[in-house]
Nucleic acid binder design. Structure first.
Length: 220
DNA sequence: ATCCCGAGGG
DNA sequence: CCCTCTGGAT
């Protein structure tokens, strides 16, 4: 099967079977989304949404957050993973917004990744969600699923390499939805350990299934 | 026990 | 490339 056919089958399947409503981060401006995405590393969106209302109430703007005291901000995000790092990142990020970006959230990946706590994945989320740029944020799910089902070559060993391959093959207007579908599929079916291949309708096009599951079918 | 839509530093 | 950070849900 050609790579082109593989993409057609997979994207078509996602379009028909995966709903695109799910728990998502709550925000009402770019600054709030940036904060929420920084907080979301290794943490569920649900828990982030539980902490952000109080955080945004106390630090509604980059100006307020830049002036925040570590010991005042920390308790507000104490229940999230890596509260120490994230407190430093938020205050540092807000300061750089003021110093380098005129108090505005920049809207290019190259500028965003300069901010403390903002890596390529976060920058791609911000630019694709806020500005509808056709960027693909490669998190752990997208990385794993893309490789398993053969959307990218097995040799793509970094998130950046996977990102570039996906972008090359997915039509621009589908990038955002494809991102969401890959995440949902990875979260509920194509999970990291013991993927639920028995309930996956993609097995007939899946490299992982072909190599690691099908040859052992019937054995136990 | 193992996993969550990672980033920074060595 | 590796390691560390680090809480909550299941």
């Amino acid at each position: 099967m050609t790579k082109k056919q593989r993409y057609e089958h997979v994207l078509n399947f996602f379009q028909e079977h995966i709903p695109d409503a799910e728990t998502e981060l709550i925000y009402d401006n770019p600054f709030q989304l940036l904060v929420a995405v920084i907080l979301s590393a290794q943490c569920t969106d649900k828990r982030v949404n539980l902490t952000t209302p109080a955080l945004f109430r106390k630090y509604p703007t980059p100006q307020k957050m830049a002036a925040a005291d570590f010991d005042d901000l920390f308790p507000l995000i104490r229940s999230i993973s890596y509260p120490n790092n994230k407190t430093k990142h938020l205050i540092g990020m807000a300061n750089m917004l003021l110093e380098k970006f005129n108090g505005q959230v920049p809207m290019t990946v190259d500028e965003l990744v300069q901010l403390p706590g903002v890596g390529r994945k976060t920058a791609n989320v911000i630019t694709s969600v806020i500005d509808e740029q056709p960027n693909m944020a490669v998190d752990t799910h997208v990385f794993r699923v893309s490789k398993r089902i053969g959307l990218v070559s097995a040799g793509a060993s970094t998130p950046l390499a996977v990102e570039k391959e996906l972008i090359r093959h997915i039509p621009e207007h589908m990038v955002h939805r494809a991102h969401h579908w890959l995440i949902l599929h990875g979260r509920y079916v194509c999970v990291a350990r013991n993927p639920k291949c028995h309930e996956c309708p993609l097995t007939q096009w899946c490299k992982y299934y072909e190599t690691f599951v099908a040859p052992y079918a019937g054995q136990d």
